[in-house]
Amino acid sequence: MGAEKPSNSSSENGGVCVGSGDRISNFETQVMLNVYDLTPLNEYTVWLGFGIFHSGIEVHGMEYGFGAHEYPISGVFEVEPKTCPGFIFRCSVPLGHINMPPSEFRTFIEKVAAEYHGNTYLLISKNCNHFTNDIAWRLTGKRIPGWVNRLARLGALCSCLLPESLKVTTVKQLPEYHACTEDGSESLDSTHESAESDDADQQDKLLPSPSTTSSDVSFIKEIQR
């Protein structure tokens, strides 16, 4: 589901968005791709043209990523830039600039979160790097570098290359989502049992999510378009 690419006026007026009358505001911000190593083995394999990477998109001073869990709700989370727990920061790649108010971006990411549920995470076709590539395209019209997600394209080889310590399929609990619904009931308990029984699907969910027990990680609560 595509989203309209926001108008970027920085190339026309130096990043200054001119409003009505004399009101002038500047919401220009850089879009950065922050790349992490999932294993120290990257130090050796990266010279061969591939590695095992996690990536997040940094916008307006926060970083956004996508991880697996077993519930049909948002798997999009935010952290302080370059500090995603459980991963080793490698580098940042500038992707361009956008001119978008923080409030507008927040609405944008909350809508996108509805498309990236934790239980839909698939290593080969819908992983954290697919998420950042999608966000980068929607915001800037640019893709992330191909080397970041090259391993996913190798398909079946990924399972063999990942060390056992990384073969964590899901985050077992999302405390912040065990809140009551509008009618006062909890709606996620039944999904836990069904997700655990579907071992075949979870074979694809090889890249771990950051720990939800960390106070530095917050999952984005989705809103519908």
Score class of each variant (00 low, 15 high):
Tyr71Met: 10
Glu4Asn: 08
Glu196Met: 14
Thr39Asp: 14
Pro210Cys: 13
Arg150Asp: 06
Asn8Leu: 00
Cys84Asp: 08
Glu164Lys: 14
Val59Met: 01
Asp198His: 08
His130Arg: 08
Thr213Phe: 11
Glu193Asn: 12
Gly51Asn: 02
Gly86Val: 04
Phe66Asn: 03
Phe66Glu: 02
Ile223Ser: 14
Asn129Asp: 08
Ala136Val: 01
Leu166Trp: 00
Gly67Cys: 08
Asn8Glu: 05
Gly49Pro: 00
Glu115His: 09
Ile57Leu: 08
Ser74Glu: 04
Thr107Gln: 11
Ser10Tyr: 10
Glu28Val: 14
Ser209Arg: 00
Glu164Gly: 09
Met1Thr: 09
Gly146Arg: 15
Glu70Gly: 10
Cys160Leu: 11
Ser194Trp: 09
Ser92Lys: 03
Gly86Lys: 00
Asn127Ile: 12
Thr29Trp: 00
Ile57Gly: 10
Glu182Pro: 01
Glu110Gly: 01
Glu43Met: 10
Leu162Lys: 01
Leu95Pro: 07
Cys84Lys: 04
Thr181Phe: 06
Ile144His: 01
Phe66Trp: 00
Leu154Asn: 06
Ala3Cys: 06
Tyr116Phe: 15
Asp183Gly: 02
Phe108Thr: 04
Val148Ile: 10
Phe27Asp: 11
Asp216Glu: 15
Leu38Phe: 09
Ala113Arg: 00
Phe89Pro: 07
Leu139Trp: 05
Leu122Arg: 11
Ser214Glu: 14
Asn127Arg: 03
Gln203Arg: 08
Thr191Pro: 03
Cys180Thr: 11
Ala113Ser: 03
Ile223Asp: 05
Ser214Ile: 07
His54Trp: 02
Glu43Asn: 11
Asp134Cys: 05
Ser74Tyr: 00
Ser211Arg: 10
Leu166His: 04
Glu164Leu: 05
Ser218His: 13
Gly184Asn: 09
Asp201Ile: 06
Val112Thr: 05
Asp201Arg: 15
His97Ser: 14
His60Asn: 15
Phe27Leu: 09
Ser215Arg: 15
Ser74Thr: 03
Leu123Pro: 01
Lys126Phe: 04
Thr169Ile: 01
Asn26Cys: 12
Asp199Gly: 07
His54Cys: 00
Asp22Ala: 10
Asp183Gln: 13
Leu139Glu: 07
Thr191His: 14
Arg90Leu: 12
Lys126Thr: 09
Pro6Phe: 04
Pro102Met: 04
Met32Ile: 06
Thr140Val: 02
Asp216His: 12
Glu4Pro: 11
Asp183Ser: 13
Gly65Ile: 05
Val93Gly: 06
Ile57Ser: 04
Gln203Tyr: 06
Val93Gln: 08
Phe219Asp: 01
Phe53Tyr: 15
Glu78His: 07
Glu12Lys: 03
Ser165Cys: 06
Gln224Lys: 12
